[in-house]
């Protein structure tokens, strides 16, 4: 079976772009600079697929064995 999108694979967590309005709020929580965020490559298949561009912040919803679902934020570079 060929998957049409990487996101269809069960191991690929959901990636979504954090809207520009919500970014300052997020950074306020995590500490001023976006340098503190983990990075994700602009060439990452999941990033290309959702059309994120360099500088965007992604919200990644992962399944977690301890917490059910958990969120990670990454900056596209």
């Amino acid at each position: 079976m060929v998957l049409k999108k990487v996101a269809d694979h069960y191991l690929v967590p959901k990636h979504e772009i954090v809207s520009k309005e919500r970014v300052p709020e997020l950074l306020e929580k995590l500490g001023k600079s976006i340098d503190v965020l983990p990075k994700i490559s602009a060439e990452d298949p999941a990033v290309i697929e959702i059309g994120a561009e360099s500088g965007d912040i992604l919200k990644i919803s992962r399944k977690s064995p301890t917490a059910g679902e958990t969120y990670y934020f990454r900056i596209v570079f």
Binding site: K29, L30, G31, D35, V36, L37, P38, S64, T66, A67, T70, Y71, Y72, F73
Partner: peptide, 20 residues
């Protein structure tokens, strides 16, 4: 104190310690 796991230069490793 905000439950994030960070390196000494404050880069985030986990947004919630142990996710729970």
């Amino acid at each position: 104190s905000d439950y994030t796991v960070r390196t000494p230069d404050k880069r985030v490793i986990q947004f919630i310690s142990g996710e729970d």
